[in-house]
Nucleic acid binder design. Structure first.
Lengths: 233, 233
DNA sequence: CGTCATTTTGAGGTATTTCAACGAAGGTGG
DNA sequence: CCACCTTCGTTGAAATACCTCAAAATGACG
């Protein structure tokens, strides 16, 4: 089922961040989208599309984690971001994808031809409004990333990243456990740090008894100091 | 006159970056916006709104340069960005402005109550589409900033910044002259560098005979190497 | 022409990056 | 089920680049 929900903390109309809550699509809108969408599963590690390819489709993440990145000329990999459930991806510039996207976990994607989508959007102001909300959400995410990468200390960046992954829903239920589906290299690429710096930062945070790192998950040991470190920078 | 034009390089529908060009608002849309908008001039250095204030209006830059920033607890100033002609600003989170905006030059602004705007948007899918385009444009700008700030060398960041300010229209007409309405401190804040680093970077680029810096303008001396330095990072 | 803000320049400190090597984990095939 | 191999992650030491602190010089403005 196609969904375009977004985190409750930023629910509301796109411009002000307040107003009527419109979390989901109506049945009619969903029908219309699903009529033109192809739904399929993607195995972990497989590429969904590559940068430079003609952007003929837009994708909606129907479950799982997707990484969006681009390999630079100097061999480094710049990670643009991660796409989670209900996230939109596949926006292009000059008709071509700017990034490569790869499934981190198993992913369910809805693939929609851009032609069909834009035609639907022009007919349905309400649905268009959902996309506007999505864009504003994306914009805020990017601003957050800007702030994150602006920090000088590796540990600070890592902590902000973990906080970003700490979905509000899980915050209480999981009692301080954050899932980390992506590799350290992926995190490093996203935070604009080296793999080594990430490793040293994790050690530093472990030694400080702030977090305890597992292979693919993190446990927050000292929530107060954690929160403080997230903001304090 | 209220306008929502955006640079020709990214004209087109928001999702793909191709398709019919819709650069301006129709007369009817402009009328409707102007009916609820207040137009006024702002003197250089004056604050348009402060962070934390209730976000009751959205602004459209009708001419001039606006800086959007936030003073942090540690005394540093984080510059979110600069708003130029036809740019939208005043987006909020939780009903409050996240940044402070100040006029760098004399600025003409259109102030629109969010309530009125959202109500208009819901009735006019075409106008809403313009806003969607704007948001996608903003998103790309943010991505560009991410790439800029991700570079390790101060000179590289500065060069990318200058390239960003080098509006395509002027590119040939001005024969390599880039206007710099903002101060070095503002640039430093935007690029996440210190004022001193900016100064040293300008010197380095001058010595390399790549650029020649004036008080409030820059001349590109070696366009080939300049372009190379913009991309090559 | 004097005052204030902005910008430049210098020297030293500190963080990440680099380069190199080791250790651990996961997947594949026999 | 184990061995092998590839990928991923850890650790160490030196280099690089920006930051910090301090002071002088330049430019704007009344």
């Amino acid at each position: 089922m196609i969904d375009l929900a977004w985190p409750p903390t930023i629910r509301g109309v796109p411009l002000s961040g307040t107003g009527p809550v419109r979390p989901l699509l109506t049945a009619a809108q969903r029908r219309r989208l699903e009529a033109v969408a192809t739904r399929y599963k993607v195995k972990p590690r497989s590429i969904i599309y590559r940068d430079g390819e003609p952007a003929e489709h837009v994708f909606i993440n129907g479950g799982g984690v997707v990484i969006s990145y681009k390999d630079m000329a100097n061999g480094k990999r710049r990670v643009a971001g991660f796409r989670f459930y209900a996230d939109l991806f596949g926006l292009a510039e000059n008709g071509r994808y700017v990034n490569t996207t790869r499934a981190v976990t198993e992913v369910t994607v809805h693939r929609i031809p851009v032609e069909a989508l834009t035609s639907i959007l022009r007919q349905d102001a309400e649905l268009e409004f959902q996309f506007l909300c999505k864009m504003v959400h994306e914009l805020r995410q990017m601003q957050r990333k800007s702030i994150m990468v602006a920090r000088r200390d590796a540990a600070g960046r890592l902590v902000m990243f973990l906080d970003m992954l700490w979905h509000p829903d899980d915050r209480d239920a999981s009692r301080g456990v954050i899932e980390l589906p992506m590799s350290r290299s992926d995190i490093a690429g996203f935070l604009n740090l080296t793999l080594e710096s990430i490793s040293r930062a994790t050690r530093q945070l472990s030694d400080a008894k702030l977090l305890s790192f597992g292979r693919r998950r993190v446990r927050v040991l000292d929530r107060a100091r954690f929160e403080q470190m997230v903001t304090g920078g």
